[in-house]
């Protein structure tokens, strides 16, 4: 067991942020190497939840156990933040160094690594996000394109070499091409290193296709927890809480409701096509 959340609740005191709901009695476990999708409409508590997971927010009650250690009790938050890497929304807004190298090295340096280790980590991180080390290391992050800035920012967290990587809408605001590339890079990384990933996304078809498992939050409560197939069966419920299902799921479910023998746990267009053709050809 890598990560276990037990009876986690959090209340913001009334004076501070009003944009996010508190969390109420959340329980779940995540195995090493799982790819978890986290969905819920704005204000459902997703951001609060992921920030409690790396100790940025101290929950009011409950336990978060990572590697047999309860991080809500620990004093060494740096270690927690190394283990649980968090990529915020629009992470390129946090770039600050003069060179790409220095910016990515910020995390590893804070961990107190040697220069060689830092360099190695920067190299590795840039490789993951498909930016050439020699070409980019000395360039100013502020003079890169939007997509490249996003990649450098993600690399900055990857260089911490976390055991769990949390990505809060990593493709928000990007154009389709860059979005697909970055998603492919994340998938690639996960397949190579079997890193544990928690992905927050508003794109249901993306989550459905990528995640082994989906957690659904609504008003601070964990309301669904299961595989893509299990979660997206609940179309009506998801719509009630302001979420939807991927279009192909909708097509397949509607076909099934019309007394057709058809599988509904399919999340790629190619497979859906095959399934429909099979049905049509009897």
């Amino acid at each position: 067991m890598l990560l276990e959340v037990k009876n986690l609740s959090h209340n913001y005191d009334l004076e501070s942020s009003v944009t996010d709901y508190s969390l109420q009695d959340i329980n779940f476990m995540i195995e090493r190497g799982q790819f978890v999708g986290l969905i819920g409409h704005t204000g459902s508590g997703k951001s609060t939840l992921v920030q409690t997971l790396n100790g940025l927010i101290k929950p009011t009650t409950g336990q978060i156990i990572i590697d047999d250690q309860d991080i809500t009790k620990t004093k060494n938050l740096k270690e927690v933040r190394q283990k649980v890497g968090l990529v915020f929304q629009y992470p390129e807004h946090q770039l600050f160094e003069e060179t790409v190298f220095a910016d990515i090295a910020f995390g590893p340096k804070n961990l107190g690594l040697t220069e060689q280790e830092v360099e190695q980590r920067v190299k590795n991180a840039l490789e993951v996000v498909n930016l050439d080390y020699e070409t980019f290391k000395d360039r100013s992050p502020f003079k890169l394109s939007g997509g490249q800035q996003r990649r450098v920012a993600i690399a900055g967290v990857l260089a911490m070499e976390p055991e769990v990587l949390i990505l809060d809408e990593p493709t928000a605001g990007l154009d389709p091409k860059t979005r697909q590339e970055i998603i492919a890079e994340i998938v690639n990384l996960q397949q190579k290193t079997s890193l544990t990933i928690i992905l927050i996304s508003h794109r249901m078809e993306e989550v459905a296709r990528l995640a082994d498992r989906i957690l659904v939050l609504d008003e601070g409560k964990l309301v669904l927890d299961g595989t893509s197939a299990e979660v997206f069966q609940q179309q009506e419920f998801l719509q009630e809480i302001g979420l939807g299902v991927p279009q192909i799921t909708e097509v397949l479910m509607k076909l099934k409701n019309k007394d057709n023998m058809i599988a509904t746990d399919i999340f790629t267009i190619e497979e859906a096509k095959q399934e429909i053709l099979k049905l049509m050809r009897g």
Binding site: Q51, L56, P91, Q94, F106, N110, L111, V157, M160
Partner: peptide, 28 residues
């Protein structure tokens, strides 16, 4: 928060160190 997630430390150290630790906040 984002810089803290990368291990930044805004609290400890003497005055000069604290002032320096603000760079990752102030520049962006």
């Amino acid at each position: 928060n984002a810089q803290k997630a990368r291990g930044a430390d805004f609290e400890s150290g003497n005055l000069i160190k604290k002032a320096k630790s603000l760079i990752p906040l102030l520049v962006p």
